[in-house]
Write a protein that binds this DNA or RNA. Structure first.
Lengths: 110, 110
DNA sequence: GTACATTTGTTCTACATAAAATAACAAATA
DNA sequence: TATTTGTTATTTTATGTAGAACAAATGTAC
């Protein structure tokens, strides 16, 4: 892949980071994957993809502070970068354009 | 990938098979990739993906008959299967659902 | 109150599958 | 016989996925 292309699982996770806003970290993303995308994967799969997204510059991470809730250790929270958002938009535009040109797949209203 | 998941390049090619209708074969798909998706890949990349799609049951191929135009040899024409179409629809529905729930990415009209 | 199980989390390592390039081969026509 | 239009085969790299080790905080039992 030419560096600017994004895999399908990477894209899914990037979308979920955006959707989860202030609460985008490994386990929460895994849960969202299950609930909102019917995709059950191990936590290792999520984390290695997150790392890859970060090293490609599509996402960034930082450690959260206080642990207010029970259990657990500091969370590594993720945010999307401008480059990541651009990749998502590009992907969306291409899909919309293709669907529109294929009657069998065209989306009427969203 | 869990067998029913489709990679991003596989999906793109499947979409182009649908779009090209009666004229979906290696080189034509490569050309469409370039023109309609700004994606320049070698012909080998296209063919190995087509083979993978076929072995997964998302596409089918058959050899065309007469060579009416200049040059060339018989074409291997591809069509999408019911399973392939279902995969595309599933993917589309997930994307639309996610975009809709993310204001920054929501599509107004298509 | 202190030992230990449990919960919530990340990191590390290894492997399977998908993506992509390159080169070889095949057949028709200029 | 060189060129065009095509497919097949082989190899390398990138993505996707699992599994287990490790870490820190809280719960619970005595």
């Amino acid at each position: 892949m030419g560096k600017e292309n994004i895999g399908e699982f990477e894209e899914l996770i990037l979308l979920l980071i955006l959707k989860l806003k202030e609460d985008a970290y490994g386990l929460a993303i895994r849960k969202a994957l299950k609930n909102q995308a019917e995709r059950t994967v191990t936590i290792g799969a999520v984390h290695s993809t997150l790392n890859r997204l970060e090293s490609k510059g599509f996402a960034e991470s930082y450690l959260s502070e206080a642990t207010d809730k029970r259990g657990g250790r500091r969370k590594r929270l993720f945010t999307i970068t401008a480059s990541g958002k651009k990749a998502l938009e590009k992907s969306r535009d291409l899909k919309v354009s293709l669907w529109t040109s294929i009657p069998e797949l065209a989306v009427n209203k969203i």
